[in-house]
Design a binder for these strands. Structure first.
Lengths: 182, 182
DNA sequence: TTCATTAAAAGACATATGTTTATAATTTAG
DNA sequence: CTAAATTATAAACATATGTCTTTTAATGAA
């Protein structure tokens, strides 16, 4: 295992924590690099040593969440669509502060793409276009269609303030997916 | 009808045409305000007299396309899902240069939201959650689920280079929608 | 045609981003 | 422990955005 210089680890941790703190205070798009540097107590140039720009930084944070979600899927064996969706919604709820702020920023498309990929990976084993209801359809179209639907619902859920309980929305989503992929 | 000063009309036309031209040459995100000003032969400050920033300008262009799409829907009476989708795909193909460039820019989320709204408006009369297959589901969830799916497929279609013919992808989309909303 | 009004131009200013260089500080390896 | 290597700092620089003020040019109304 390649040993990483301690200074690098310390700087990155400080920077990431600074961003997370600031995200709780103001829209991501309005946070300046200088604010991040001040909060992290590092030189502004140091941020550029580690990240291309602040959106690259946000991408990395999103990626960490994606890894967590992927891990949760690994740990849970053989779920129904409803159960699988519920795990995601639970996770989003637990980290709602980050996701709310992130989803209203210009960094949201990265999340959408990454989560879409994750959903596609999870659904792929369930799609059968050689027989049954989806016979003759293009596999990519089916996957993309329903994965986009799932991602869209998650975003809408955040946008309208997450009023619908996670259990309920996971149930409705699960029902629609069962009809089409089950 | 409020008469608009000719100078305003001329400036806006020049600016919009300049952007469209530049979009054919480079990624939208990489176009500078100065480049737009030079191409439109206006002062840089003039752009700010009319638009908040270049993304506001892009939003306006997107809005014009949305209006066109909406008009097409008006003109076509009582379509199947497949036919309705095909009209959209035809339009996107006809304006593929603009949409390709726009969809790879930071302005894409605005398009997604506006097109999503349009799709929701078109589908709303078709959704019945009081009886039948979608009974008991939340109307907003159903609408948002399938409209997101449609928007996601359009974006994917552009992203993979529009290799699938419009007729085919409209057909596959139509079939999935018929199963769920028909 | 004239004149009042309005839009555009020009240039300066403030702010933020991203880059670069030399120096200082810290870490790592022997 | 020492020295080499690496990372961070500080400051300067270039570029781009967005704002503001004064002057010029064009428009629209009478």
């Amino acid at each position: 295992m390649t040993k990483i210089d301690r200074r690098i680890i310390k700087s990155q941790e400080a920077i990431k924590n600074a961003v997370i703190e600031l995200m709780a205070e103001k829209p991501f798009d309005d946070i300046t690099i200088q604010e991040i540097a001040d909060r992290a107590n590092v030189n502004r140039g140091t941020i550029y040593l580690h990240y291309t720009d602040k959106y690259d930084l946000l991408d990395k944070l999103i990626e960490e969440h994606m890894d967590n979600l992927r891990q949760l899927c690994r740990e849970a064996a053989d779920l129904t669509f409803e159960e699988g969706n519920y795990i995601w919604y639970e996770y989003f709820e637990r980290h709602q502060l980050f996701f709310s702020t992130m989803l209203s920023s210009k960094g949201a498309p990265f999340f959408r793409n990454r989560f879409l990929q994750l959903v596609i990976e999870e659904f792929k084993p369930e799609v059968d276009t050689s027989s049954g209801k989806n016979e003759g359809l293009d596999e990519d179209v089916v996957l993309k269609f329903f994965a986009s639907a799932v991602v869209g619902i998650v975003e809408w859920w955040f946008k309208q303030g997450r009023t619908m309980p996670a259990r309920v929305i996971a149930g409705q989503t699960g029902r629609l997916l069962d009809r089409n992929l089950g």
